[in-house]
Design a protein around this nucleic acid. Structure first.
Length: 552
RNA sequence: GGGGACGUGGUGUAGCGGUUAACAUGCCACCCUGUCAAGGUGGAGAUCGCGGGUUCAAAUCCCGUCGUUCCCGCCA
């Protein structure tokens, strides 16, 4: 009987558990000190030969893993991830419960929201020709719960956004959604910070926090130093502004850019000019060029036109390498080295373009260099707050202001007058929680004053009629005594991803979708039966031909 | 919508102009077995994602296409 049993069979064994005989213990195994002396063994269920090995840690093609997700989820790594996720959510629920929050479910079938991401639509049978939308988040509903007097609300909420997928973005994902009444920004941040610290201590005690209490950066500080509103703060690699020095060099592009008000920034890559296999030598000219070409290609992907550099020698007397060294006087070089803290063997990389492009390039460079130079400790958690976001970004295409979070975000009280004079300068009461290069959560104090709320619509290019159509229920509710309120939402998938030390949320999602939005196990989405469509009064338009642009 | 990487027995990889397409593991058979991802012997298993082209000759080079994935756009 035992001989018939194979891997993945489900067995029932009757017998006596006993201590293993002398000398047969195996300390490598969790059951290494015991035996079962079986008197009866029954095969409850046989198994086909699985398409991949369950009990081994191999790099199985992810498509295969998703096709047989129920087998993939048997693997120890995935089980640990699922348990970690459970423990995380359980801790957060318990914590909030202990703080007097109550969990309230909000509808999945709700109303389309005009701003933000693309909605998933669900056709209504009872209301032919009309559609529900799946919620992008419970934002409106939780504010209405504040109107309703539930002063501390939370929900582990599924959210839906029909946008292109990324490693950290699935079309459906989970938020820990929270809202509180009678709070100011500091109240929310203090509570959330306490929750982060307690969570990490309990769920991932082996992962040290870099900042306790959490570091705070303004949006502007983060962008100028790191080029991102969610920088990975486990390492430095700060961009340094050298517009004054480099703008006075003889390098024409820097001169022109400095004059045009475009910044010139330097990212210093420590020791990048040094051979990795022999720290006593610098890279060959060839090796240096190859490395810089790679990095230049990288920054080009975000619109930078090039990447100038100076590679420093190992001895103090040597000359810098790189195409722009000759345009700088000795004094200018010394000033650069002083400003950037340059050391022998470093490479200084220069980025100059319009501000946003420099930011994007700095972000790319930092992430890439951190990997090359192995600067990010996978065990460390660098949680931090980003605050003082601008209320609006200018939307060049539509010639209007776009809310940087959403249209219910309260401006910083002292910036309210700026809404009339200079909206671009107004800061929101928003706060983002970031960690290791990801946005983990975001929130704000909301507008609870109807007249202020009505001021927002024209600013973002919406007529009052349109606003009433879309948000009439909100505006009306706001006429019935709204407490000041604010809240936050955390991305549970990303949080668990960091805890599990993996680099995409599919690893912590039981049944994820591929980048093209497919469930390759169940084959969703799938065609609807004609009868189903008929019931919904839906007729399909002709589908675009696939591959019609084919050449020979 | 655009760009990059990848696609070779069941699985993971090697091969990158001419090889009977290699290795590991899994699978099948037999043997052995109280140190456990057991061991031994033997065996089956890949028209190299698909289509076209270049070439005397293509897994290998080129073009297209499909799929996965990373990035830009999009998304907070």
């Amino acid at each position: 009987m035992c001989h018939q049993a194979r891997m993945e069979y489900v067995l029932q064994v009757h017998g006596v558990v006993r201590r293993r005989p002398e000398g047969t213990d195996n300390p490598e195994m969790s059951t290494g000190t015991i035996d079962v002396v079986a008197d009866r063994v029954e095969i409850l269920n046989a198994s086909k030969v699985p398409p991949f090995l369950i009990n081994r840690d191999e790099n199985i093609d992810e498509l295969r893993r998703m096709q047989y997700r129920y087998l993939d989820l048997r693997r120890p790594n995935m089980q640990q991830n699922m348990i970690l996720r459970h423990r995380t959510v359980k801790f957060l629920r318990d914590f909030l419960d202990g703080q007097g929050f109550i969990e309230i479910e909000t509808p999945i079938l709700f109303k389309t929201t005009p701003e933000g991401a693309r909605d998933f639509l669900v056709p209504s049978r009872l209301q032919p020709g009309k559609f529900y939308a799946l919620p992008q988040s419970p934002q409106q509903l939780k504010q209405l719960l504040m109107v309703a007097g539930y002063e501390k609300y939370f929900q582990v909420a599924r959210c839906f956004r029909d946008e292109d997928l990324r490693g950290d973005r699935q079309p459906e994902f989970t938020q820990l959604d929270m809202e509180l009444s009678f709070v100011e920004r500091e109240d929310v941040m203090r509570l959330m910070e306490a929750m982060v610290l307690a969570l990490c201590e309990n769920v991932v005690p082996h992962m040290p926090l870099k900042y306790k209490p959490l570091r705070r950066l303004t949006y502007t500080e983060a962008m100028e130093a790191y080029g991102s509103d969610k920088p990975d703060l486990r390492y430095d690699l700060e961009a340094v502004d050298v517009t004054d020095i480099a703008g006075r060099s003889a390098f024409p592009i820097f001169q022109q850019n400095a004059e045009a008000g475009k910044p010139i920034k330097v990212v210093r890559a420590p020791g990048l000019h040094v051979r990795r296999d022999d720290p006593a030598q610098i890279l060959s000219g060839e090796g240096l060029k190859r490395q810089m070409k790679e990095l230049e290609d990288l920054v080009r992907t975000v619109g930078a036109k090039g990447l100038a550099y100076m590679a420093l020698p190992l001895d103090e007397t040597g000359e810098v390498k790189g195409p722009i060294g000759k345009y700088f006087t000795v004094e200018q070089k010394l000033a650069l080295f002083e400003r950037t803290g340059a050391q022998p063997g470093d490479i200084l990389m220069f980025l100059s373009d319009k501000r946003e492009t420099v930011w994007a390039a700095v972000d790319k460079l930092r992430r890439s260099l951190a990997e090359t130079l192995n600067l990010a400790d996978p065990n460390q958690l660098a949680f931090a707050w980003i605050i003082d976001f601008p209320m609006f970004y200018w939307d060049e295409e539509n010639q209007r202001w776009d809310p940087s979070q959403h249209m219910f975000t309260m401006p910083m009280p002292e910036d309210i007058p700026l809404l009339d004079t200079d909206p671009g300068k107004a800061r929101g009461s928003q706060y983002d929680l970031i960690c290791n290069g990801y946005e983990i959560g975001g929130g704000s104090i909301r507008i609870h004053d109807r007249s202020l709320q009505e001021k927002m619509f024209p600013l973002i290019g919406q007529s009052m009629e349109h606003a009433r159509e879309q948000f009439g229920h909100m505006l009306e509710a706001f006429e019935y005594g709204v407490p000041p309120h604010g809240g936050m939402a955390w991305g549970v998938d990303r949080l668990v991803m960091l805890f599990a030390q993996v680099d995409n949320i599919r690893e912590v999602t039981a049944f994820p979708k591929t980048q093209s939005g497919l469930d390759v196990m169940a084959h969703a989405p799938s065609a609807a039966e004609p009868g189903q469509l008929e019931e919904l009064y839906i007729r399909l338009a002709p589908l675009p031909e696939k591959g019609e642009t084919a050449a020979p």
